[in-house]
């Protein structure tokens, strides 16, 4: 983390202000993620986590500030453009295309690249061998853990440089949450930078390099994950100890 910024960060939010109508949600929020990093964004309900993701993806536009991907200002660009620049998302609650097969779901992940290649499938099947067995099964009939794999596989099909994960532990049994984070670690080790947006501070900080903590639209803490885990305030607020 201490090496000089010779390269522009993979993703950078620069003093972003996002509003919903009159309501000021994100207040001068700045964060950055470098290639290969695993960063988590923590915060409770209504802290602005989802809005941050929407701002990054361009589903909402900030009123002030800039969003940069690889140093390029994409603040005014459409979602599809940003996806094309190397972002991908695993949405909250997975949001699979339920009546389509696993294979078709994966194919849709590579939509912007004009369709997937054999290597894309091979890469995803290497990470999740189970998906290969299940490829002609309808995505909606899979169990929660399997669906999470499809959601991740679908996102990885676009060969992203940065994978955004919205609440990966949401709605999963504790044992599945742990497995899920093993998967995340595995994907990260294959060279993909990640931003994990989570309420579950404990698990996410255990695998992250760095962390940001949001509260009512402001950054209240940031730093290496190890430091955050020792932080008294955070402990009280999120870790319940």
């Amino acid at each position: 983390m201490s090496e000089p910024a010779t390269q522009a960060p993979l993703l950078e939010l620069d003093a972003v202000d996002t509003y919903y109508g009159q309501i000021h949600i994100l207040q001068s929020l700045s964060l950055s993620i470098r290639a290969g990093e695993l960063v988590c964004l923590l915060g409770g309900n209504a802290s602005g986590k989802s809005t941050t993701l929407k701002t990054i993806l361009g589903i909402v536009r900030p009123r002030n500030g800039a969003v940069r991907i690889d140093g390029e200002d994409v603040t005014k660009r459409a979602t599809s453009y940003r996806i094309g620049r190397g972002l991908a998302i695993v949405p909250e609650n997975r949001r699979l295309f339920a009546p389509m097969t696993v294979l078709e779901n994966l194919e849709m992940g590579a939509y912007l690249r004009g369709g997937p290649s054999k290597e894309d499938f091979a890469r995803v099947y290497d990470l999740f061998p189970l998906l290969h067995d299940r490829r002609s099964q309808l995505a909606g009939t899979l169990s929660g853990g399997e669906q999470q794999m499809v959601a991740m596989g679908r996102a990885l099909m676009s060969r992203p440089k940065l994978l955004l994960m919205d609440e990966p532990s949401m709605g999963l049994a504790p044992i599945l949450v742990e497995r899920n984070f093993e998967i995340i670690k595995q994907v990260h080790e294959s060279g993909v930078a990640m931003l994990i947006v989570e309420q579950n501070a404990n698990v996410s900080l255990s695998i992250a390099d760095r962390g940001y903590v949001l509260s009512t639209g402001r950054l209240v803490l940031e730093g290496p994950a190890a430091d955050l885990r020792e932080n008294e305030e955070l402990r009280k607020a999120y870790l319940g100890r």
Partner: peptide
């Protein structure tokens, strides 16, 4: 996929 989940479709860059 658009019919099933417009938001997810958009997040795939469609």
């Amino acid at each position: 996929s658009l019919r099933e989940d417009p938001l997810a479709a958009e997040a795939m860059g469609m």
